[in-house]
Design a protein around this nucleic acid. Structure first.
Lengths: 205, 205
DNA sequence: CGTTGATGCAAGCACGTACTTGCTTGAATC
DNA sequence: GATTCAAGCAAGTACGTGCTTGCATCAACG
């Protein structure tokens, strides 16, 4: 039964490298170190192998935002954005291939869509709790800010190695920059320059 | 010589629909209404046909930002962003396919990169003239804001029809929203709610 | 020991794809 | 009217690709 797992992983890897058409059953079998016939015996067809292979990649993408903002909002958001960005960077080849082949393989839509949507919704909820927008305009501005943060992470993950000039911040600090700008948009001042309350070294008066 | 042009256009169209591997010489010739043999007589090989086809798509993407910001900055930026977004939306299939096949066809990199880079550089120059950032931090923040605006347009063009939930603003007003947020980031107040000077309906005192 | 079940190997089938060859047509040019 | 030249058509070649078949191997389990 170990051949199954090896084939699934190889299928995902070869697909990420060459897309559906380029991921031939010969290449997948070779990458898995398994005979091509075994592939068909275990999965019946290439279609079905690929379909199963997609299920296994899902849970790779970063972690979740907490339901309630904590004391150090910036730290929390930076951690989330960094993890999210790193996760997307790791599977960027897969995402690029998937997005390119949506018309030919519509069943892949859910792979991208289901993975992305909850992250965006989480961010909107979080931002709404942070800012508590009152007017409709403020609510819309908040949503737009979320779209822009989410877009920045998406575009950075997919575009940095293609158009590096459009991403001047170094890769490891980019997420922090995006979050800072996002917080400024929401009117949340950065934690650093604000007063520190009752820490051991606090000066008297 | 008209067959040449028809083949070039058909090649670009079929490539945008199905990628390099999917764009078979049969399909291209059929789409062009030309015999397949003619394709090889005129271009020698599929590779060469595709290479020439790419040259013709370049100049499609929107217009330029002026060198100097004019009086109505918001209007100017909205017009630019809208045109840029529309242009990218029109060729989004092509961009998606190209980005997915960069590893296999590295010569396409310049197609994406050369098209994108100048737009970003223009935006940075424009924003720098607008805000005149003094400190290094301000300069970096300005660049990050430019990355985020440019990322928002990019992600909207490529992602809206895939993950619509992440783009709550309707397609025709989205560019305006992004620009407004961008201007707020730069500390440029929107033109509307500020004092209006010497307009007919201005109230006395 | 004999059976079973997963896997490997060699070969092949049917079809699609890039590309070629040889011949015909038909309109423009001298 | 003879020549030329782009284009069509039919057929074919060599190879890649999804998938099948028949048989051998080999470890696990009763």
């Amino acid at each position: 039964m170990i051949s199954r797992q090896k084939l699934l992983e190889a299928a995902a890897a070869v697909f990420a490298e060459s897309g559906f058409r380029g991921a031939t059953t010969r290449r997948i079998a070779e990458a898995a170190g398994v005979n091509e016939v075994t592939l068909f015996r275990l999965f019946g067809s290439k279609q079905q192998l690929m379909a199963e292979a997609f299920e296994c990649v899902h849970p790779l993408l970063g972690n979740s935002l907490p339901d309630e903002p904590s004391a150090d909002v910036e730290k929390e958001l930076v951690a989330w954005a960094t993890a999210h960005l790193d996760g997307m960077r790791q599977v960027r080849h897969m995402i690029r291939k998937t997005m390119a082949e949506l018309e030919e393989h519509p069943e892949m839509t859910e792979f991208v869509c289901d993975a992305k949507t909850p992250y965006f919704q989480q961010l909107v909820s979080y931002a709404t709790l942070l800012r508590r927008p009152a007017t409709a305009a403020e609510r819309e501005e908040t949503r737009t800010a979320c779209t822009m943060l989410s877009s920045a992470l998406f575009a950075d993950a997919l575009g940095r190695d293609v158009v590096p000039t459009a991403y001047p911040s170094p890769p490891n600090t980019a997420a922090r920059k995006y979050v800072k700008v996002f917080l400024k948009l929401l009117g949340i001042a950065p934690a650093r320059p604000r007063r520190r309350v009752a820490l051991g070294t606090g000066r008297a008066r």
